[in-house]
């Protein structure tokens, strides 16, 4: 196992070297171009490396844009690396950023574990790392400066609390889970259950994964409707896309989504707001992707050495929207 680890380490190093050369080349030409623009005044912006998970959908796109815009506003130069849904890509990108000697790194990790080695490298070279969106699990807390993200556990709790208020604490619920094993799935599953544990009237009669996908959400909901029929009073979906799929399945079964069956979901993407205005979705708990400004506020402080009172965990406040508040804010939604 050791030799394997060493071999894979060597491979990682080699790959990161190759990547480094590539990125080095391209960034050199970038710099050249920028110098031309600035007229060569010589002021250098601090460079931040940003390791993103990939491009999974609308939410992630808004997340990336937010980081990019915030970097520009804060006057940083952003180097962007896309993990394309693979942790190894993210690790490679991270170590190449370390090798380039950037001023700071923002990491949006795909998974929680396996970051110790590469974060140690960053620490040795005194490059501060900020964890964004999802959490990491490392042995030594000092490997990263702070974590900023949405509290997916709390989102599950908020959804349950809204539901209890709406139904008076009595409902039969079917749950559409996200991808098995993903941290939002686990947290939204636990958060919801921890709240309803005190309310025996709320009963989860079926729970299946819809993979965070519209078509799967619809397919699973169809099966639920066949099995439980009129018993279903509430659908709790771990994201909006599955709720939208479920809405279609409910309509196909000749029922009115939003009235015959209450739907509550999480994320707050634009399509969910549209569905709420149409009266087909009852509630969505926003999971705010616009994390860029908060991240760069923190990064500024970190680079200024002002981290004395910085908490290890900074949560972005989530809001709950129902049909009424959806009408008011739908025009101001960016994503």
């Amino acid at each position: 196992m050791n030799s394997y680890a060493r071999k894979s380490l060597r491979r990682t190093l080699l790959a990161s070297l190759a990547l480094m050369i590539l990125i080095g080349c391209s960034s050199k030409s970038d710099n050249g171009a920028m110098k031309g623009d600035n007229g060569g005044d010589g002021t250098s912006k601090p460079i931040i490396g940003f390791v993103q998970t990939g491009s999974e959908g609308d939410w992630r796109k808004a997340h990336t844009e937010s980081v990019r815009e915030a970097a520009e506003e804060a006057g940083f130069e952003l180097r962007f690396a896309d993990g394309q849904a693979k942790q190894e890509n993210q690790i490679k990108a991270l170590s190449s950023f370390v090798a380039q000697g950037v001023d700071g790194i923002i990491l949006a990790p795909l998974v929680e574990t396996g970051w110790d080695n590469v974060l140690e490298k960053a620490k040795k070279r005194n490059i501060p790392v900020l964890i964004l969106d999802r959490q990491v699990e490392v042995k030594d807390d000092s490997l990263y400066v702070t974590y900023i993200g949405a509290d997916t556990y709390n989102e599950g709790r908020l959804a349950a609390e809204w539901l209890i208020e709406k139904t008076g604490g009595k409902a039969k619920v079917v749950e559409l889970q996200g991808t098995p094993g993903a941290s939002p799935t686990i947290n939204r599953y636990n958060g919801f259950r921890d709240v309803i544990a005190d309310h025996s009237g709320i009963e989860i009669i079926a729970s299946q994964s819809g993979d965070f996908r519209r078509s799967k959400g619809k397919e699973v909901m169809e099966a639920f409707l066949k099995k439980h029929g009129d018993d279903i009073e509430v659908v709790y979906a771990h994201n909006d896309d599955m709720a939208i799929g479920a809405i279609q399945a409910i309509e196909d079964a000749g029922k009115k989504p939003g009235d015959d069956i209450i739907l509550v979901s999480i994320d707050g993407v634009r399509a969910a707001f549209e569905a709420m205005v149409e009266g087909k979705l009852n509630c969505t708990v926003e999971c705010n992707p616009l994390q860029g400004p908060m991240a760069f506020d923190a990064m500024k402080k970190i680079l200024a050495g002002d981290i004395g009172d910085m908490p290890k965990k900074q949560m972005i406040k989530d809001r709950v929207y129902d049909r009424d508040s959806a009408k008011e804010v739908i025009d101001s939604r960016k994503y």
Binding site: E56, G57, R214, K218, I244
Partner: peptide, 9 residues
């Protein structure tokens, strides 16, 4: 079926 082009999935 889902009234949308979900190219990711």
């Amino acid at each position: 079926n889902i009234n949308a082009a979900d190219t990711m999935n």
